[in-house]
Amino acid sequence: MKTLKKRRRVQVIVLAVVALALSTALIGYAMRDGINFFRSPSQVIAEPPKPTEVFRIGGLVEEGSIIRGQGETVQFVVTDGGESVPVAFTGVLPDLFTENQGMVGTGSYVDGVFVATEILAKHDETYMPKEVVDALKEQGVYKEAGEG
């Protein structure tokens, strides 16, 4: 009788471990397309990602780089002070999107151009996404509010 209880307990534990491993694998598989890594322009230039990889890029919109094309197509250049990456976006830009301001874009790097599917801009005078601040600090370009 004791061996039957012991065997049943071992079976339940093994089944629980297998179910946990399977559910973890399924969650990882489901999230593989939903994870977007952040890169600065310097990182994109140093190690260009594959054209099929979707990631986020952030930095400052270079002054004088915004070119509005036909319809809703916009081209501009994003920089972190070290390197610059041209960006192409078709859609409506956020109201606060301007030159010399922080932005984060989601998309892929195809033939030397970041093709954005989404553009986010800062939402007030002092806000900038943490990833952009870190990348700009790394380049020695970022200044805190109030610094001259």
Score class of each variant (00 low, 15 high):
1 M>Y: 10
4 L>H: 10
10 V>M: 11
14 V>W: 04
16 A>G: 06
16 A>E: 08
16 A>H: 01
16 A>M: 09
17 V>F: 12
17 V>I: 15
18 V>E: 04
19 A>S: 14
19 A>I: 14
20 L>W: 08
21 A>E: 03
21 A>G: 09
22 L>N: 04
22 L>A: 15
24 T>E: 05
24 T>D: 02
25 A>V: 08
25 A>T: 07
26 L>I: 12
29 Y>N: 13
30 A>Q: 12
32 R>K: 14
33 D>Q: 12
33 D>A: 14
35 I>T: 14
37 F>Q: 13
43 Q>R: 04
43 Q>C: 01
44 V>I: 13
46 A>L: 06
46 A>H: 02
47 E>D: 12
47 E>Y: 03
49 P>E: 01
53 E>C: 07
56 R>Y: 06
58 G>D: 08
58 G>C: 09
59 G>E: 12
62 E>P: 00
63 E>A: 14
64 G>T: 06
68 R>N: 13
69 G>W: 05
71 G>W: 06
74 V>I: 13
74 V>D: 02
74 V>Y: 01
75 Q>S: 14
77 V>L: 11
78 V>I: 15
79 T>Q: 12
79 T>M: 11
80 D>K: 05
81 G>M: 09
81 G>V: 09
82 G>P: 00
83 E>H: 08
84 S>A: 15
85 V>P: 03
86 P>W: 04
87 V>P: 03
87 V>R: 00
89 F>R: 05
90 T>P: 01
91 G>V: 06
92 V>F: 08
92 V>W: 02
93 L>A: 00
94 P>C: 06
95 D>G: 02
97 F>T: 01
98 T>S: 11
98 T>L: 08
103 M>K: 01
104 V>Y: 04
106 T>A: 13
106 T>V: 14
110 V>T: 10
110 V>A: 04
117 T>G: 15
117 T>R: 12
119 I>V: 15
121 A>H: 08
122 K>H: 12
124 D>L: 04
125 E>L: 09
126 T>M: 14
126 T>H: 15
126 T>K: 15
128 M>H: 07
129 P>S: 13
129 P>A: 15
130 K>A: 11
135 A>K: 05
135 A>V: 07
136 L>G: 04
137 K>A: 03
138 E>S: 10
138 E>T: 10
139 Q>V: 06
141 V>G: 05
148 G>L: 15
